[in-house]
């Protein structure tokens, strides 16, 4: 009898833990599956690519194998003006597709149907690459955003999309988000304005469908710095971002943010080596009042990590 009690005890542990997993994991899974992706959700998922964080294509989390986000003001095929400009997500051949493009169930039932019926996303393939965009459709008087495979529906090729956009309108959003994760920015900044007075300063809290297909969501829990979910709506100056990342004390003397000057790499935009030690000496002199102005922040190179990070901040965090 005594031995049986322990068998009941063991069964009790399994049963209770199983019940709690049923309530906290299985039941909510129905809610999660029915979440319909919003425009924000589609934009984030398609610009981030398959996975941010450790993955086969990007083990070092530095942004390998990520799609490019381009801003198009002309149709890459016909050359007709597009006003207002649209975003397109360019998956060069071999770039792994974002999770909802591989598994449309992640889009939610209605968005999935629209994205397949109208958007033809099931006709894209990784080996050839594709250009995706976000379109809108009317369903029972309501406007829905859905993913569209523009390579099929509009004949936009990867090369045409990239050359139409040009370097200035090509944004390394997926790579930038990878650097956000790699550098651990999210240990201090959150991406989740709260349902209190927060929204008056930091903007609206996210909606249910804003996360479909995103990985990782990196909400952040320990806020030692402002929420940045909508930072680009408050401040969209690329120059300010540059100075702030190079040395936050240049624009905000009391900031405790680390310097991210190392994201500039070795050379500036003209290929000249960046002399960090001279820069720091001059900056120290400025802080001591020995110089009237701080030294100039070097222009970053075209493919510097900092470019991708600023691209992500200014494009994705609106």
């Amino acid at each position: 009898m005594a031995f049986q009690n322990y068998r009941w005890g063991t069964a009790g542990i399994g049963g209770m833990f199983g019940l709690s997993m049923t309530i906290t994991l299985f039941f909510p899974s129905f809610d999660f599956r029915s979440a319909e992706s919003t425009w924000v959700g589609l934009d984030k998922a398609m610009s981030n690519g398959r996975v941010i964080g450790f993955s086969y294509e990007d083990p070092t989390v530095t942004g390998q194998g990520k799609p490019l986000t381009v801003i198009l003001n002309k149709d890459p095929k016909t050359g007709a003006t597009i006003d207002p400009p649209v975003r397109a997500y360019v998956y060069q051949p071999g770039t792994p597709f974002a999770s909802p493009l591989n598994h449309p169930d992640n889009l939610g039932p209605t968005v999935k149907r629209l994205s397949i019926d109208k958007g033809k996303i099931d006709q894209a393939n990784k080996a050839q690459g594709a250009v995706f965009t976000i379109n809108h459709a009317d369903v029972n008087g309501e406007e829905w955003a859905y993913a569209e495979n523009a390579s099929v529906t509009r004949g936009w090729t990867v090369d045409a999309a990239l050359s139409t956009a040009g370097d200035a309108n090509t944004k390394y959003v997926g790579r930038g988000k990878s650097i956000y994760i790699h550098e651990g920015c999210w240990w201090c900044h959150t991406l989740l304005p709260e349902h209190t007075q927060d929204w008056q300063v930091f903007g609206t809290p996210p909606y249910l469908g804003d996360f479909n297909g995103e990985m990782p969501t990196a909400f952040g829990s320990d806020r030692k710095a402002p929420d940045i979910l909508h930072v680009a709506s408050r401040n969209s100056s690329r120059e300010w971002m540059m100075m702030h990342f190079f040395n936050p004390r240049l624009v905000q003397p009391n900031s405790i943010m680390p310097r991210f000057d190392y994201l500039w790499g070795r050379v500036d935009i003209n290929g000249n080596p960046i002399d960090f030690s001279t820069w720091r000496k001059e900056y120290t002199a400025y802080r001591k009042g020995e110089r009237p102005y701080p030294p100039e922040v070097p222009e970053y190179a075209r493919n510097a990590e900092i470019r991708a990070l600023i691209d992500w901040v200014l494009t994705s965090l609106k």
Binding site: F32, R50, S99, N106, F211, N212, G213, E214, M215
Partner: peptide, 11 residues
């Protein structure tokens, strides 16, 4: 490769 709110919640 579970994503979105599922990932956030499981974290």
């Amino acid at each position: 490769n579970l994503t979105g709110l599922t990932e956030a919640y499981l974290t």
